[in-house]
Structure formats: C-alpha cells, structure tokens
Write a protein that binds this DNA or RNA. Sequence first.
DNA 1: GCTTAGCACTCGCCGCATCTGAGTGCTAAT
DNA 2: ATTAGCACTCAGATGCGGCGAGTGCTAAGC
Lengths: 361, 361
Amino acid sequence: MANSSHTRSGDTQVSLPGGGQISERALHFLKALIERYIRDGQPVGSRTLARDAGLDLSPATVRNVMSDLEELGLVASPHTSAGRVPTASGYRLFVDSLLTVSPMDNSLLEEMRSGFAPGAESKVLIESASRLLSGVTHLAGVVMVPRHEREVFHQIEFLKLSDTRVLAILVTADGEVHNRIIHTDQECSAAHLQQASNYLTGLFSGLDMREVRRRLLDDLKQTHRRMDEIMMRAMQMAQRVVEGAEHQDDLLIAGQTNLMEFEELANMERLKSLFHAFTEKRQILDLLDRCIEADGVQIFIGQESGFELLDDCSLVTTTYRVEDQILGVLGVIGPTRMDYRRVIPVVDVTARLLAAALRQH
Amino acid sequence: MANSSHTRSGDTQVSLPGGGQISERALHFLKALIERYIRDGQPVGSRTLARDAGLDLSPATVRNVMSDLEELGLVASPHTSAGRVPTASGYRLFVDSLLTVSPMDNSLLEEMRSGFAPGAESKVLIESASRLLSGVTHLAGVVMVPRHEREVFHQIEFLKLSDTRVLAILVTADGEVHNRIIHTDQECSAAHLQQASNYLTGLFSGLDMREVRRRLLDDLKQTHRRMDEIMMRAMQMAQRVVEGAEHQDDLLIAGQTNLMEFEELANMERLKSLFHAFTEKRQILDLLDRCIEADGVQIFIGQESGFELLDDCSLVTTTYRVEDQILGVLGVIGPTRMDYRRVIPVVDVTARLLAAALRQH
DNA sequence: GCTTAGCACTCGCCGCATCTGAGTGCTAAT
DNA sequence: ATTAGCACTCAGATGCGGCGAGTGCTAAGC
C-alpha cells in the first residue's frame, strides 16, 4: 500500500483541500469525466474517458487513475460494472479549480438584455429575471426580492376610503409601492390625513426602514405627551403600515417544471416535497439568506445546502446590488449534474442586468 | 339479441339521456361501483360489488348487470380479467342523478369558517379560499379573482413621486387597490394632481370599470377643446391607469402538488404539462370563464372540458357572488376519480364563505 | 324466468432463470 | 509507467410458468 497511486513520478502533484495529493493528470481526467457526465448523465467508463480525455492512453491506464480518484472520494461507481460518477466533493473540486466557464455568446447576451423592459417597475424586472434564469438554463430560477429592511423610506400618504377606513400608501426610494388598509376607530378628515402624511414624510424620508421602525417605536414611547393628538395618531398608523410591510422579503420562482425533465429527480416523492418547498418558500428563503453576504457567484452542491430536500440538487446564486448596496440574491436550482460552465455566467449576467435595470429608478 | 338485458321484467325501467333504458337495480349497482372505485381506485370485480351493493345477489348476477352497464358505455374494463371502471359517461350519470352529497360535518364547517380572517383584504380572502379548497379536498384549488371589468370605480388619487413620475392609485368599491406609476413629460404640481383626482373621482365614482373605460374614450375624443388642459391631462392619465388594470383577472392556484398523489396522473409527461398549464394560467382561465354564467355547482368530467390536458381530470366549480353580482369562479381540479360527494359541498360552502367575507367591504 | 353454481378461459403480474454487454480489477508482459 | 489480456461482476433485457382475479357462458335450480 506504500504507493497505490497510479501516478507518474515526474508528474506535478497538487495538494487537495481534503489533505491528499493528486496528480495534474488525474485532475485532467476528473475534469473530463465530469464534463462528460454532465453532458449525458450516465456513468462514464474507462474506454469512453480514454477517448474523451485526448491524452491517448489506454482504458487500463485510465482505470488505474479512476481508482485513485475513487480512493480520494472524488468519484464513485453506482455498482461494480458501471462507470464512475462524480461525488459531491468531485463537483466541489471541479467548480472550485477545474471549471473553465465559457464566455457568454453575444446573441444570448443580447437576448437576455432585451428580456428586461427598460424603466419597468421593479416587480416586473424581478419577474423577468427569474423567467430569464429558468428559460435560459432550463432549470428553476429563483430571485429573492429586496428585503424591505434594506429599503429606504421615501414618502407616505393617507387616503380616506370611508369613515373608518384609511388607505396608507408607502413609497420607497426605489419606487416600490406598498398599500395597506387601516381601520380606525375615530373619523379622520382629509385635511388631517394630509397633515399627517406631510409630517411623517418630512420626518422619515431618506431613512432606511429599519431605522424608521426604530424611531417610530422610540418616539411613540418617549414623546408621549409632547405631541398633539393628530400627530400621535399619525405615528400609530405609520407603525401599523411599517409593521405590516415587515418580512415582505419574498421569493420568486420560475420554471419549476423544468426540473421534471431530469431523471435523477424523476421520483414522485422527491419531486413532490421539492415542489412543496417551492410553494412554501420559507426554507428556500432561509437558504438564500445565507448567500446574501457572499461576494460573486456562490455554489452549493448537494448536501452542502444543509437541507435534505436539495440533496441531489445544486444551487448557483449571486447577489445583485445597486451602488454597493446588496438588494437581493438570485440564482438557479437544478440537479447537481447541471452545466455549471453555462449556468454560472448566466446567473452572473442576469444579476448584472437586473441591477442595471433597477438602477434606473 | 332481442333481450340481452339482464333485468327483471318487474323492475322499474329508467330512460337514459343517451337514449337507452336501464333498470333501477342496474343504476344502484353503478352507484355502488363508482363509490367503491372512488374509494380505492382499483377496478371493481363482481364479487366485491356483490358484497358492496347490499342486495344479496350472487357475483354471477352482478356480472350480468355489469355486462349491461358496459354495453351502455357506463363502465369499461381495462382488460379481460380486471374488474370494471367507470367511464366518463358513467361519472356523468353518477353526478347528475345518483349522487347523494353528504351534508357537511359541523366541525369541518367551523374549521373552514375560521379559515377566513374577517375583515381582511379581498386578496387575502381569495388566497384563503384557494388554500382551503386544496387543503380540505386534497386536490388543487383554483380561484378566479374578480374580473376588473365587473368592478366598480370608487376613487382615484394621484401622488407625485418625482418631477416626472406620478403614482396613480385606483380604489374600487370592494376595497381593492391598484397602483400604477405614470411617467409624464410635463411636471405636475401637487395642487393640480389633487384637482385632477377630485374631478375624476366625482366623474366616475360608482360606475363599473367597463363604463369608465367607455366614457373615458368618448370624452377624450369628443370634448377635445371644451376642457381645460389640466383636466385633459388628468383624463389621459386616468386612461393609462384603467388600461393598465385591464385583464387583471387572475387566477390563484393552490395545492398543485396534491395532484402528484394520484397514480392515475403519476406520469411525468402529463404532470409536467399540467403544471405548465397551471403556471401559464391562460387556458385554465378560459375554462373557468365558461363557468361564470352557470348557476350552482358545475362539473366537467374528463374530456368534457374540451381541453386535452385535463382528459383524466375533473373540474368542480361554482360562482361566488355578492348581491347577485357574480364576482368570480372557484373550484377544484382533480382526477376524475375524486370524491364528488365530499368535494361538491366543500366547493359550495367555500364559495358562500368567500362571498360572505367579501360582502363585509 | 330470474338467479346462480360451475367451468373454461383470459390476462396481468410475480418470481425465476438466462443471457448479454458494459465495465471493472488484477496480473503479467512490454 | 503503460497496456493487453482475462476472469469476474452485475444491471437490465428477455423469456417462461404459475398464480389469482375476474370474466362469459351454460345449464341447473327455485
């Protein structure tokens, strides 16, 4: 066992994150194997790989190398007489150091760019983004919409609907509009409402929602008597609006049905719970939340998501931001066996396009 | 062949919509067969049916009757040595004349009633309805939301966002709020906007949207010069709002994943296209549109929907209305083999509860 | 004249054995 | 270090016999 590694001694050795050593050549084979497996989804045998790798070596040699890769836990064979399949760690290594992302084809870029109607509302833009993601990659596209917390208060307005109902309209700096109907016990005149909205808008305009919420609470507590009654009521109404808009951060998913195409997921049980999670959204949101601080494209492979449902899935995400302010996260969900080379640039570009479109507000 | 019908001559004969004759007893068997089939989804054999029907007849007799039913196209056998399965016409006859809907259990009624938060916004109520439908029946619940056309204009308000952008808020009589951001070439002062909204609200309040749209068009054409410029511009803005709100009639679907439980639909191809139709919504909407004039609970069985995707599905719908005004359609989609006895009252009650909740506006 | 027992028959399904082909690991030769 | 050769493994396809559920028909029974 002193040297079971089938590696030419002259070959460059590379050390693995896991601690092992691996030859350049073995990595080359791993790359070829994964690319092949991504292409047609079937275990790759030594003969095929020998042909694929372009190194003019015999299948027997390849077998030796594959045996090493297996020992390192980078590939596995579903059963004795099948080829090899990448493991999660195999994919990990692949995306981290082997992957050469293909630059994006110009016509596709153009197509994607035209997917965003310029000047549209942010909600529409976000829908476009998720539709594009799923359409172009044939996977499920996800976009987490701006967390309300990070939005900036712009103005608030009250509209009398009837004697006891007031419509509050909260406009944020990015042009988003939130409505809420408030039932009041006391009647408010239009003039009072106007006054209230002017007051609040002056007070909070330009602050982010977290700050607004904080001040609202403080002011309500402290200045209990100093304010006149109308302003007091205005503050109370404002609080209800702001509270109602809490946890507005939502998730848009498109192209879920795309996932039904993949045999590795073609299992009713799994699909059902997956789709269920998609409609519940909560868990997916939590997951995306974890990506929000990261820079650049993030990839979760298989169990890395720490979320059993997505064991056979990968998640490719990135943040989109306007003026260094992170607005949200977008990406795709698909089987671990997805075409990372193509998917990664698409996710990246979508984020940039979305950000650019949002910047126009 | 003069009399191949295995029917006691003393038995009451009933004529069928299709033209044939059938004995009361045969109908009783049909009913038992369908109920059994709905229960456990497997072809029903003569022995089982003999036991089930409670008539103390031998399997042989039952076989004769079943043979008649088959001749009439009410049941079919998947293959020689399987039992019988209801056909679409069988189900049709069943729901039309054999079905005894079970009165709704009180605790369920209570549960459903509490599913509607009193005084909530109509959007929330509609969501509750679709969630309830799918939750209680374990099928997919659909609710078509009020067609904007039929809604009644209540008030309109304009809010200045920036120099060139105005937020238009359209409130309908049922408390629904529609926003739209309008880009204007010319700057509008807050006073002008106030004036405009007063003017328009006075002009259109109480009219239904169809009427509003019509008048808007007429007035814009005819009174071209008689109005001052500000009002003119107000009308133009209003038109853009109303236009934008067109075809707002939308569809809410809940519990799609429930459909994955049924083996008769457990076919990736079919499921995929079904789910696709659910996200596209267009076709389902058209279908529901056809139910809008009907009174009471409507049932489409299998191909009756005229919509290939739903060949193995049934659709149970009813309208919900407030003060004799039809607001929309709701119901469930599920496999033809669904428990109509239970589903029909649920659909019915949901419609009533939703209507009652909406009436509070 | 219905009803029913009896019987031959059909046919899907299950388990079993067999065969094939792809792919492996090992060993010995180059 | 590489490779040809070989024995071996194993999933998947194919074919076969038996079983059981269910049918249709016929003839006997009430």
